[in-house]
Design a protein around this nucleic acid. Structure first.
Lengths: 249, 249
DNA sequence: TCGTACGTTGTACAATATACAACGTACGAA
DNA sequence: TTCGTACGTTGTATATTGTACAACGTACGA
């Protein structure tokens, strides 16, 4: 075999950009990468990322398990493709020409909505996603909310990464507390009845005066369901205030 | 059997506070919960949380796999115990009486150091950890950095949660980028040589003018190793500026 | 027309958490 | 002192997981 002929295992970047060289030999492909990714997203949305096993995914597509490996080198790459696909399809509220604070708030809310709609993505997406088409379009769009404010290029990137990290974490925490609440087959009353005595014994105000006082106040203020949304609203204002400190004018 | 006799499966809270009722019947226990947790932490520190399997952990303790289930109801609870143990042992820089900004910066740095030393904990610890002894002591200590500043109790809790979420995410992103760099058996030069042509084709400045410009500047400014620490330093200042907006005076 | 590149698939394997039952230890009551 | 039993320990077993491998058949290019 010549060196030019050997098929290099498809790179993640090539896959993201759908730049795999087609050879035309052998049987026709029965699926496309997009179909596989779309089915995987549907499964993850419906039952969580844990439900996306190669077996179940293949079954939902009417193919054998190992067939998937024709389209995707492995599960890691599949998840990367799923996330980039989300980015490609996400709603991006127009931000250009608006006051910077409004624009960044819109960016944050779009991201929050995305991760709340697809909680598995918040947990799986890394701080710096690979440069797929979705990520690039998203990055371009979001940077424009920071363009023309007098920030240097590096500061623009820093600021955006900072904002996005906050949103992703907020959405992740929200999803997690929601999941815990659903998983616990216990009402708040039952939980307190079960754990109250121990906590009362152990949380004495001698050792933890501030913690007990503040914890009680916080617990009463937010009912658990509202907690996450409150944290997002609070954090968003703080984050924008923090960025204001480096934005001239 | 009478209802009073049945042994209720040990609660996570009881376990955290080591409040399991001792009966004294049957053979002596060959281990303690603390030994199990300490061994698990050692394993996680050395080889990551994935290496902490019930088999390997039991083996490192010289016991059979299922023996662990005498000490811990399951792996979920084990991880919670590991994290609370970390909290108990973490260094807590004194903060009382110092200017609030210094105190909060110290809190942030202590947390960052903890999660950088135990990267698995950053990934595994939830936004609101269970009320174990470690978490309670930590919460008490950290709240004191916010005490007496004119904030209401609820705002104190909000502010602390906001700061800690930032730190945890920053440490997590740092660990992840570090892990990726080590896992990739490729120098930056090799990577660019492999992926450069595709990226050059696909990242045209027509579609992504701002992204290409800013991305290039950011890429050149931070070499990957320094990137994470820079993001933490940048984000910490922004976070403190953001909190300054709600701290009177 | 035919060789071969490649899509498809069944089987196989190593690894996971943990359910279950057998076994033996040592305490508490007699 | 004796004996029943609560409980610590352990081996085996099961349902899952991702994916390596080899057999098989299809359809393009020479």
């Amino acid at each position: 075999m010549s060196a030019a002929t050997e098929t290099p295992k498809p790179n993640l970047l090539e896959l993201l950009w759908r730049a795999a060289p087609e050879t035309g030999r052998g049987p026709r492909k029965g699926l496309t990468v997009d179909e596989v990714v779309a089915a995987a997203i549907g499964l993850a949305d419906a039952e969580g990322l844990d439900a996306v096993t190669m077996r179940r995914l293949a079954q939902s597509l009417g193919k054998a398990t190992m067939t998937l490996y024709t389209y995707v080198p492995g599960k890691t790459e599949l998840v990367a493709l799923m996330i980039d696909s989300l980015f490609t399809a996400m709603t991006m509220t127009p931000v250009e020409g608006r006051p910077w604070r409004e624009g960044l708030a819109a960016v944050a809310r779009d991201n929050y909505a995305l991760y709340r709609a697809h909680p598995w993505a918040a947990a799986a997406s890394p701080g710096r996603p690979p440069l797929g088409p979705g990520q690039c379009a998203k990055y371009e769009h979001e940077l424009r909310a920071l363009e023309g404010l007098g920030l240097g290029d590096v500061a623009m990137d820093d600021a955006l990464a900072y904002l996005l990290a906050f949103v992703r974490t907020a959405a992740q925490d929200a999803a997690q507390s929601e999941a815990e609440r659903e998983a616990t087959a216990m009402t708040d009353h039952e939980w307190w009845q079960a754990n109250g005595p121990l906590l009362a014994k152990v949380l004495d105000t001698e050792r933890f005066p501030v913690a007990v006082r503040v914890g009680q106040a916080a617990g009463e203020a937010h009912d658990a369901a509202y907690d996450a949304e409150h944290a997002f609203a609070f954090g968003l204002e703080r984050t924008l205030d923090g960025l204001a400190a480096i934005i001239p004018g």
